[in-house]
Design a protein around this nucleic acid. Structure first.
Length: 260
DNA sequence: TTCCGGCCGG
DNA sequence: CCGGCGGGAA
């Protein structure tokens, strides 16, 4: 049934529209630099963001929130600074590993790293110990401005509860759905049309291959992916919580699959 | 106690 | 597929 997927994609666009109307731009992932985004992406793995902020504040106060800083700080010292973020031994080791990778592969240059094609850089990141799909995509999108959608536990939970995709849907499947759903929105933004209320007009367009994407389209897509993930996290944190969800006040309540 | 903006190794 | 990693806040 080919109509199934199209319906799901339209639903995703409806969610984006409703959430953006309710909350507006999220200014998601506030950070001073790209490297801060990368550090945050590591530290926030299965960890509350408030704890990540404490660790980041420690690093910033110690003037270690940079490639050079992580490079020179002794491992044991790094562990102490990021302790509030939990898993501090793993995470300290993995931050060191990332800088080592950056040094060897890109001579310590983030601009050189992010100049790499999206797909190839993604594979390189995934090969690193401590970087899985979500961390890789977070780095690509929020630090590198590459057009990839970030799937997290909130995304999966919302899709499952709304019966759009099963709970055990793969990361790739979820990401594909959002890619296809939001590509038309990116085009809409690129065409300098208003986003809100215009989402119904362009439907059914498959995602362009990266090579066929203009700079304007790419930038627009990055913005849309950025916003959508931020909005979803807002839903997950405040309403679609693991236990005791508060569907009554959720901006997405009208889309619930007719139950309680 | 539960949960958090995951990921790795057995 | 499962256990471990871990501190902080609700």
């Amino acid at each position: 049934m080919p109509g199934q997927n199209e319906e799901k994609e339209r639903q995703i666009r409806n969610y984006y529209d409703a959430l953006y109307r309710a909350w507006g731009a999220q200014h998601w992932w506030p950070a001073q630099s790209r490297f801060e985004v990368i550090v945050g992406a590591y530290l926030t793995q299965n960890t509350a963001w408030t704890n990540v902020e404490k660790a980041m504040a420690n690093l910033r106060a110690a003037r270690l929130l940079s490639v050079a800083g992580i490079r020179r700080v002794p491992l044991a010292r790094l562990q102490r600074f990021i302790r509030p973020a939990g898993y501090f031994r793993q995470k300290a080791q993995r931050l060191k590993l990332f800088v080592r990778f950056l040094d060897r592969r890109y001579r310590g240059s983030l601009p050189r790293m992010f100049a790499q094609p999206t797909g190839e850089l993604r594979e390189e990141l995934l090969a690193l110990n401590g970087i899985g799909p979500e961390t890789a995509d977070s780095i690509l999108l929020y630090a590198g401005n590459h057009p990839v959608f970030v799937v997290d536990a909130y995304t999966r939970r919302i899709l499952a509860r709304h019966e759009i995709l099963p709970e055990d849907a793969s990361y790739g499947q979820i990401r594909e759905l959002f890619d296809r759903a939001l590509a038309p929105v990116g085009e809409s933004v690129a065409g300098s049309e208003r986003v809100s209320g215009q989402l119904e007009k362009k439907v059914g367009g498959a995602a362009h291959p990266p090579s066929a994407m203009s700079t304007v389209q790419r930038t627009a897509l990055v913005q849309v992916y950025n916003e959508m993930h931020g909005l979803i996290v807002g839903v997950g944190k405040n309403y679609c919580r693991k236990s005791q969800a508060r569907c009554d006040d959720c901006p997405l309540r009208e889309f619930l699959p007719s139950r309680m």
